[in-house]
Design a protein around this nucleic acid. Structure first.
Length: 573
RNA sequence: GCGCUUGUAGCUCAGUUGGAUAGAGCGCUGGAUUCCGGUUCCAGAGGCCGGAGGUUCGAAUCCUCCCAAGCGCGCCA
């Protein structure tokens, strides 16, 4: 089964830590709780793994760091270190200890990549407990937009990462089909329906971001102008004729909601996203749960009445102002059910609760977490991932977008234009924390300037080599002798491949999928360098099979990595 | 005005949680290649890491103050 708990780096670091501690225990002046640290040097000249222990120890031992480094390296050599694992120790720079891996250990890693196949880099399911990732969570008022797309892809990939590192993951979509937004939706549909029934209905013009639009007289001022509203309306007209003219707008709301939700699910499906559960905010109002929360907050003096509304004392959480929890109409603002929702998730016993929110929530989500905490719940398991907004760029200029009105690019349109794989990748190739500039011209390009194709091409090329070998009937030796892999590019590639489980782990822990895309680019690059310098077919059977195994291992890592990102790994392009 | 986030090569962005000479892709300049897929590879130019202080052996990274951008700031979510 999976290996990621005992990753290659983990093995090396714990081995070197134990050996270093052994040596340090014989030296005077070393603090008892001293823990050596390791890092992967930026430059290969500095070896495979480096420790700054001598630098850290300088102030305790009152000796020059380099001197300490020399001393330590002498003592480590005298142990001696296992040459299969560590080939060389060097003292360098201001006092670093640089270690280089032994090839025997690298080759056992290669065997592992091949034998674990699609599980390489994956930890045992459930070994870390359970996690819930809440994402998308758009209310069904219209098609998903590009902004939702970033949320969806980010959430789904974080869920993948958590699953790969051993969590049993639930993907949840939280929505609200009550409230003002949805009423407006119903009214918008009804107005369009009435216009379909009676084409001569009186109209008015409204201003939408400077554009004048003609709508029926009864169309709500902040109504939804998207074309899909008219689709739903004309469907209702075709089906029911004019029999709904005097119906309540709730019927129209329900019809629109059902239709829109189906479309949302279809859109998510195109991206390969399947939710495990849909949580309707409405359910929180059963058993009076949310009202009990208000009472509890009152008892804690965190809620009070004023101007006919109930207020949350966010000032106590360090905010400048208090905020409304229940409107004077008696309707809660989103904060209250959100508090209830998080308490619900905590009570469902998840070990990790991840929320994926847009930058517009950045200032408000702490209120929710603080309230949950004040109510006596442990909020340590809650982790909020915030992503910045997306700007579509065409021909170097930003594409204008206005979410509420008719003028926006839907996620479906984006996928139609640049494909599902490219959409996912572009959302994942930058850290969530930075503004994403989505260059449509670059995304459409099927060349090496487009990073997705670079990765997929490397995979397809390996598949092609395998096919070719079969075609020409090339014979490999039974068992590959990895010792024949002596070329620099072979060793560099193998070392890169072995990092995969660690990259997965770190990306999962920091909830940063972009680390995977960066890493895969590196793998693809290392592979093409190897490919450029070393031939496979045509070499002696021994060398060819060793290299073929290295190529297969590369294919395995590329495929596993792409599958974490939810992107296809084509055999041909 | 206040809060959060961000500021790194011409452009888009990484930067292993404080390490060594700050990197990649694109673009630009120059080269390579009879080949298992030219959707390739190599080299070069390009930087006051927004600015100024501070912390220490060591700062793009941590602290303070400025400057700029994005998001938010009592009954939208």
């Amino acid at each position: 089964m999976g290996s990621s708990f005992h990753t290659f780096l983990f093995f090396m670091q714990s081995y070197l830590t134990s050996q270093l501690l052994r040596v340090l225990s014989e030296m005077e002046g070393v603090p008892v709780d001293f823990k050596p640290e390791f890092e992967q040097p930026a430059s290969t000249e500095h070896g495979d793994l480096a420790s700054n222990a001598p630098l850290k120890l300088a102030r305790f031992l009152k000796r020059a760091p380099r001197q300490i480094a020399e001393d330590l390296s002498e003592r480590l050599r005298a142990l001696p270190l296992d040459p299969d694992r560590i080939k060389t120790i060097e003292v360098a720079g201001p006092g670093f200890l640089n270690f280089r891996y032994g090839t025997a250990y690298l080759f056992s890693g290669l065997e592992k990549i091949l034998s674990e196949g699609s599980n390489f880099g994956r930890a045992e399911r459930g070994s870390k407990g359970t996690a819930i990732v809440e994402f998308v969570s758009a209310n069904p008022t219209g098609p998903l937009t590009v902004g939702h797309g970033r949320n969806a892809v980010l959430g789904d990939t974080i869920a993948n990462l958590l699953s790969w590192t051993g969590f049993d993951v639930t993907r949840e979509y939280y929505f609200n089909d009550a409230g003002r937004q949805m009423r407006t939706l119903g009214q918008s549909v009804k107005a369009r329906y009435l216009a379909a029934v009676d084409p001569d209905i009186s109209t008015k013009t409204i201003d939408s971001d400077g554009e004048l639009i003609t709508v029926p007289e009864c169309f709500p001022d902040d109504g939804y102008l998207g074309e899909y509203i008219q689709h739903v309306a004309s469907e209702l007209f075709e089906k029911h004729g004019d029999s709904l003219v005097s119906s309540d707008s709730a019927i129209f709301k329900d019809a629109a909601e059902k239709r829109i939700f189906e479309e949302i699910k279809t859109t998510l499906g195109r991206l390969g996203i399947r939710m495990d559960s849909y949580f309707n905010e409405k359910d929180l109002y059963e058993d009076n749960k949310v009202w009990e929360i208000v009472e509890s907050l009152r008892e804690l003096d965190l809620a009070y009445d004023s101007e006919g509304a109930v207020w949350l004392r966010t000032k106590k959480f360090g905010k400048e102002k208090d905020t409304v929890l229940v409107k004077s109409t008696g309707e809660p603002t989103y904060r209250l059910p959100d508090i209830g929702y998080h308490i619900d998730k905590i009570s469902r016993g998840f070990d990790l609760i991840v929320d994926v929110f847009g930058a517009d929530h950045i200032a408000t989500y702490p209120d929710v977490v603080n309230a949950v905490k004040a109510l006596g719940h442990n909020t340590d398991s809650i982790d909020v991932v915030i992503y910045q907004f997306v700007t579509l760029v065409r021909k170097g200029k930003p594409v204008k977008m206005s979410t509420r009105k008719a003028q926006y690019v839907t996620l479906d349109e984006l996928m139609d234009e640049v494909s599902e794989d490219v959409t996912r990748f572009f959302f994942l190739m930058r850290s969530a924390n930075t503004h994403l500039e989505f260059d449509l011209d670059l995304a459409r390009e099927a060349s090496d300037t487009n990073p997705v194709f670079y990765l997929q091409y490397a995979h397809a090329r390996i598949c092609s080599i395998i096919r070719k070998a079969k075609e020409v009937g090339f014979t490999f030796s039974q068992e590959a002798d990895f010792k024949l892999l002596t070329h620099d590019s072979e060793e560099a590639l193998l070392k890169e491949l072995l990092l995969f489980p660690d990259v997965i782990r770190r990306a999962a822990e920091s909830r940063e999928p972009h680390r995977i895309s960066n890493y895969l680019r590196e793998v693809a690059s290392q592979f093409t360098q190897f490919y450029g310098q070393c031939r496979i077919i045509g070499e002696t059977p021994d060398l060819a099979s060793a290299r073929m195994d290295l190529a297969r291992a590369s294919k395995n890592v590329l495929r596993n990595g792409l599958s974490v990102l939810g992107i296809s790994a084509p055999e041909k392009m």
